[in-house]
Amino acid sequence: MSAPGAAVLSVDQARMVQGPVSIMLGSCGPLRRPHVARGIGCCVSADRGTVSVLVQPSAAAQVVDDVRANGRLAVVFTEPISHRSLQLKGSNARLEPAGGGGRELAQIWAGGYAREVVDLAPPTWTPQRLIAALVPANPDDLAVLVFTPDAIFDQTPGPRAGEPAAHPAAHSAA
């Protein structure tokens, strides 16, 4: 359930962030030094007010440490072909176990992402090799960063980059 005053994703935005997109996480530590890591899948709550991003804690250790320390997280979702991008920022992020569905979510995300980018990759990178490179071999090395977005920004390259994303009512579709 979303918090009062939280930014709620539109249906289109929720569909996008759960799709075959590049997911980059950003955080900062006590010295305001930035840290980044790759997300490997995303789920949005039914009310579109809570976002859960799947991560590999061993590969995202600094981001996980920052989130544990201050709860702040920025996530950029980018469609690989169009470069359409959304950035979600939250201040209440927390790490939770991925549970039994974590590995399945990672496989679904990686499969979709691999199909999107395989034509852009070197010829030796088949969808199977891309999936293997993106999904951790150890299913116990998966967790989710769960947060309520405080703000949503359009980060698609162009004149609107950095502007607040349109209100959900403008993008809602059945």
Rank of each mutant, 00 (worst) to 15 (best):
S2D: 09
A3E: 15
P4H: 07
A6D: 05
A7C: 07
V11L: 10
D12L: 11
D12P: 10
R15S: 08
V17F: 00
L25G: 00
L25Q: 00
P30T: 13
L31A: 14
R32F: 15
R33F: 12
P34I: 06
A37V: 01
C43F: 11
G49A: 03
V51Q: 01
S52Q: 12
A59V: 10
A59S: 14
V63W: 08
V64L: 09
V64H: 06
D65Y: 10
L73R: 05
A74H: 08
P80F: 09
H83V: 12
L86N: 01
L86H: 00
G90W: 00
S91Y: 06
A93Q: 01
E96R: 06
G99D: 05
R103I: 11
R103W: 11
E104D: 14
Q107I: 11
G112V: 02
Y113E: 05
Y113T: 04
A114W: 03
R115L: 11
R115Y: 10
R115G: 09
V117G: 04
P122E: 09
P122K: 06
T124S: 13
Q128Y: 02
Q128T: 02
R129P: 03
L134I: 07
L145P: 04
V146M: 08
F147E: 02
D150F: 12
A151T: 13
F153M: 12
T156Q: 04
A170D: 12
A173Y: 14
A173K: 15
A174T: 13
A174G: 15
A174W: 15
